[in-house]
Write a protein that binds this DNA or RNA. Structure first.
Lengths: 223, 223
DNA sequence: CACACTACAATTGTTGACAATTGACATTCG
DNA sequence: CGAATGTCAATTGTCAACAATTGTAGTGTG
């Protein structure tokens, strides 16, 4: 089901669309953490005035992806290791809640979908296709928090996932991390399929905690 | 320690200050959920142009306090009972984490401060001074999440607390709720003072869950 | 050579103007 | 009388212009 252009404009204004586009540009790696985000260039690039660009950047500031410095402009947020750790801790409890809610409400079709994600990631792991794994992993996580049925939870969780991409972009995931990570995915889905909220909550939270430890062990610097 | 005017402007731009001011106006009850937030009037009121007002409102949109409708403007967010429940669920796990972290790192001075808050609320409860209780309660909660030492947690938690004020503004807290609420505060602080992370986590999460039940039992409508 | 000062281009912060949209009200028609 | 249409004021969305700020480069001095 696709929206036509009129419907798109009816439900989105320029700053909203811009926000998504700039977010894509930032998280896509075109900007590094700490990079200056030039309003004028962005306005030229999208063929619009600076007003809506500033509005979009304000939103991204609130989402924690950029930081505004008065009279100097917006900069892609730079995360310290300590900040990344903090974000992971919050993300872990949120994901634990998502796992619990999911186990309480999952449908048979939902379990099938989760298994399908697992199979896709199995394939990527077997082929050592890191890039494919990361993509499916993102969609898998998003599916989980959206399916948990609590929009506030999904929004807060995805905000943190995006913030962490600012940190992870600097640190490559190692192959054995991918394997370990995926073992945890199996455990998560097994718990959900068993409709065991406590086990699912624990498996989900532990997955994020383990991801934190894996990431921090490959990036020991505190600053 | 007060900043002089130059320092304030150095570290804040107009939209940032405006955001805080508009937030105060909204949460202070001047606007009801669903009310239209008129850019032009706000600009006149603060003696500035509409540009910075729009930027500030964009931020508040990202924080979930207002909602933007294309070509119609910004409206104070209206929460359904189901949405409020979702927010409470997320808030509960966050507060649980805050309690755990606090129990792990609280100082003797910190415990004294918590006890001081409790004493103040004891006084308010004994005097049936609901208004004073609500104020101290807010500061008490803020102190807890800030003292937990995880800025991401504090920011996400306070964002949810503010959002819930949009819902609670419509529902008065009853006297017995205040008494029950405060019993839970005692349990929370006892667990933290005992440096028992698991007990503190449980007490904090339960407090928010109980607050949810109290609020929902006084507002049965789902819309 | 290092530091201080000056000039200036680039950028940010804000403003007021104009075009587009919407809701409220009045008028017309069946 | 109710529904449809037209009008218009208020407001939103965006733009370009201007003032203010900042960083950089060049120059002068000890």
């Amino acid at each position: 089901m696709t929206l036509n252009a009129i419907d798109i404009l009816r439900s989105n204004s320029l700053p909203t669309l811009l926000e998504q586009e700039i977010e894509r540009v930032i998280l896509g790696g075109e900007f590094a953490p700490g990079d200056h985000v030039n309003e004028k260039e962005l306005a030229l690039r999208f063929g619009i005035s600076r007003g809506p660009v500033r509005e979009a950047l304000r939103s991204l500031d609130s989402s924690g992806l950029v930081e505004q410095v008065p009279n100097r402009g917006f900069f892609v947020r730079r995360l310290t290791a300590a900040q990344a750790r903090d974000i992971y801790d919050v993300r872990a409890v949120l994901f634990g809640l998502a796992g619990k809610l999911l186990a309480e409400r999952i449908t048979d079709e939902g379990v099938d979908q989760l298994r399908a994600f697992i199979a896709e990631m199995d394939t990527a792991v077997a082929a050592n296709d890191f890039e494919a794994y990361v993509k499916i992993n993102f969609v898998f996580h998003e599916f989980i928090v959206v399916s948990a049925g609590n929009p506030t939870l999904a929004q807060q969780y995805m905000t943190l996932v995006k913030q962490l991409r600012l940190y992870r972009a600097r640190n490559l995931m190692l192959g054995d991390s991918m394997h370990a990570s995926h073992q945890e995915h199996h455990a998560m889905v097994d718990a959900v399929a068993a409709r065991d909220p406590a086990r699912a909550s624990l498996a989900h939270a532990r997955h994020v905690e383990a991801a934190k430890e894996r990431l921090m062990s490959t990036a020991p610097n505190l600053k």
